[in-house]
């Protein structure tokens, strides 16, 4: 569904991504992991069109994405969330999601139908769909949910979820993991999930790609990857606890 080949991104002289290649199959949940600063968010930025890659090709559903603007990427069925939530503060929670539902698809229907879809998605992620509820009601966890709801409202086939749930407690992490599983189950959305704590991922993802210093150092089933000496070294003593 998504094929990334030789993706390279340099900021001035600094190479944030170096010749990274991976594939995502339809219906899969792929974990993209790596220590802080390894280039995960940069990879998302390149795929979603927020940054132009220095080199490489990104093919999605048979079409090239490199150099395509973010709004077109979204219309083609690829949505992303931001690691640090970026809600539209001047809009209510519902309007945040409704605007994505309305403009996120090529064939925009009526504004009323966008609100209906937004309401359903808010219910699914467990946020209030009261038309007047402002985003200031939401704490860190709520804002994460809003990010997810807004991305899902655009009706994606593939979701790039930049979660990095460090900072959430174990219960919240488990909820978030369940949420992504439900997203795939109920909406049939394929998912690439970024996270740097491996333990959270392993219960949910089918496959893992590991980045370190902008390079892909491992790929495979979670248990195999966790045992890979290069991965253990990259995490430099950070415990890789599997549950």
């Amino acid at each position: 569904m998504l094929t990334v080949t030789g993706l390279t991104k340099r900021f001035g002289g600094f190479t944030a991504l170096n010749d990274v290649s991976f594939e995502v199959g339809e219906g899969e949940i792929l974990g993209l992991i790596g220590p802080n600063g390894s280039g995960k968010t940069t990879a998302f930025n390149c795929i979603s069109g927020a940054l132009a890659p220095t080199a490489g090709s990104i093919r999605f559903l048979g079409k090239e994405l490199a150099g395509v603007t973010p709004d077109v990427v979204c219309h083609r069925g690829l949505a992303r969330t931001f690691q640090i939530p970026r809600p539209f503060r001047k809009l209510s929670i519902l309007e945040n999601v409704a605007v994505a539902a309305h403009y996120g698809t090529d064939r925009a229907g009526s504004e009323a139908s966008a609100r209906v879809r937004a309401t359903k998605i808010l219910e699914m992620v467990g946020l209030p769909a009261d038309p007047a509820a402002p985003t200031t009601l939401l704490g860190a966890g709520g804002l994460k949910k809003l990010e997810l709801a807004r991305a899902l409202a655009t009706g994606p086939r593939l979701l790039l979820a930049d979660e990095s749930l460090g900072g959430l407690d174990p219960a919240e992490m488990a909820t978030a993991a369940d949420m992504l599983r439900r997203v795939r189950g109920e909406l049939g959305v394929t998912i690439v999930w970024v996270e740097h704590i491996m333990a959270t991922l392993t219960r949910v993802v089918d496959r893992v790609v590991v980045l370190d210093h902008g390079e892909k150092i491992a790929e495979g089933r979670p248990l195999d990857v966790a045992a890979d000496p290069r991965v253990i070294e990259a995490y430099l003593g950070e415990p890789i606890v599997l549950t």
Binding site: D71, F82, R86, A98, V99, H102, Y103, A151
Partner: peptide
């Protein structure tokens, strides 16, 4: 009253986030 107002508010606040939900900035 239009949804376009929401889109413009979104752009005014955060162009990157607005574009990521399909708004043609």
């Amino acid at each position: 009253r239009s949804m376009a107002r929401s889109a413009m508010e979104a752009i005014g606040e955060d162009e990157t986030a607005a574009a990521s939900v399909g708004i043609h900035v």
